[in-house]
Design a protein around this nucleic acid. Sequence first.
RNA 1: CGGGGCAUAGCGCAGUCCGGUAGCGCACCUGGUUUGGGACCAGGGGGUCGUAGGUUCGAAUCCUGCUGCCCCGACCA
Length: 491
Amino acid sequence: MSKGIPSRSEDYSQWYNELVKKADLAENSAVRGCMTIKPYGYAIWEKIQAELDRMFKETGHSNAYFPLFIPKSYLSKEAEHVDGFAKECAVVTHYRLKNDESGKNLIVDPEAKLEDELIVRPTSETVIWNSYKNWIQSYRDLPLKLNQWANVVRWEMRTRLFLRTTEFLWQEGHTAHATREEAIEETELMLDVYEKFAQDFMAMPVIKGIKTANERFAGALETYCIEALMQDGKALQAGTSHFLGQNFAKAFDVQFSDKNNKLEYVWGTSWGVSTRLMGGLIMTHSDDQGLVLPPKLAPNQVVVVPIFKSEDQLNAIRVKMQPFIQALRNKGISVLLDDRDTHKPGWKFAEYELKGVPVRVAVGPRDLENETVEVARRDEKTKEVVGMELMVEHIDQLLEDIQINLFNRAKAHREANTHEANSMDELNRILDDKGGFVSAHWDGTTETELKIKESTKATIRCIPLGNPQEAGVCIYSGKPSIQRVLFARAY
RNA sequence: CGGGGCAUAGCGCAGUCCGGUAGCGCACCUGGUUUGGGACCAGGGGGUCGUAGGUUCGAAUCCUGCUGCCCCGACCA
């Protein structure tokens, strides 16, 4: 492990790339555009999964698993859906390999061509709705609320670890409802779940909103999203929740008999968050020393670094600290005792800073004498000496403080980087100057949205929920506008 | 997918212009001294120079194809 990572001010994207690798989160694999998620990175993802899974179940959803492969014909059943994904699908055309004449090279057996080619799922609406057709007959079968944890593949041109990879991990929820109102309610409920998770666990403030027609999920009537602002002033779409209307029900002929024995198409939703959240987590909190993790998602919340010269000293520290470590664990706090003698304390300090461990406890002979420990917090890089008998309570409180501090800090950053623009000049100036969210009047047309994107590289991130209605003129066309929308350059 | 850059030990790089059989720092191994912010000294191991061809007595070095990575664009969560 070499020391240090580039600073954020020098080159933010270089900083990000190096941090992901140096903190042992992930690396590029031998397969183009695909990443290997390393144990430390995967441990964070597992924490994300565990909490989201709990929240999904609490809101009445069950997990299931649908196949990786989708018959090509399924995708084309919903016209807009196929348009949205056709350009980035991996296709399975053969089912067998064989040795060539020389016997040395494996080749695709031309005899083994699939009659019906299979698509590696870019998302699973189509296979799932194909099953829903068989599962739903009556209003008594509704609502049907499923989620699956899965990998999906979208053949991307340009990839970045966690933010955009060809294969990625996610969850996709797919629900079916008897009424339009209930489906919309579900779409909004899951958006709230995402917001709560992002804010309470990732300590990442998000703005809930609705996507414009242009940015909408292919096949949805309405796409809701949570948008976060990264440290470099670029926005990140962190999660989406789609109201599908009856589009997929009609495409896959999913009808149910209502209480009056009348056949109706069901109403659908789908919603997802992906390993992209890892990118958001990193870019929301981390600094030039490395990763900064919110306590609720840190694989190790506390690391204890003993400082010793001899084996006897180490043993004395072990014996002294054991009950305190146990007491922390009894409170549900994860504690790592790094008593390796192969690395020096200073090395360990730097290492755990790089890996974002929220709290570090150092204990040496001096502390044993004084009945104290040195407690350092990763977020503010401050340390203080605490009496041993107060240590458990202190750390418990400190972890809570860090969780809240990270959120407040990120929120302050977002607020400081959200501005209003009343002209194209102003929009451009803000974007080039410091980036961030820019609230501006827009005439509501896709045409204008695209023109603005062309000239500024900024897109409409969302129309915030509960957006104040305010008469104005579109900054591009000068036409009347009823509200401001949020523009930003985005990941 | 277009433009540019890069590919030499696990990592970061020099050597390439001007062809003569590979070097530095970190990491690793051994021994010793060390240990409260990435220790020091001594010794040691590790590379068919991304890959496939070509030119040449001889290629990391020159030529061509391919692959991968990084940056910039178009596409996207």
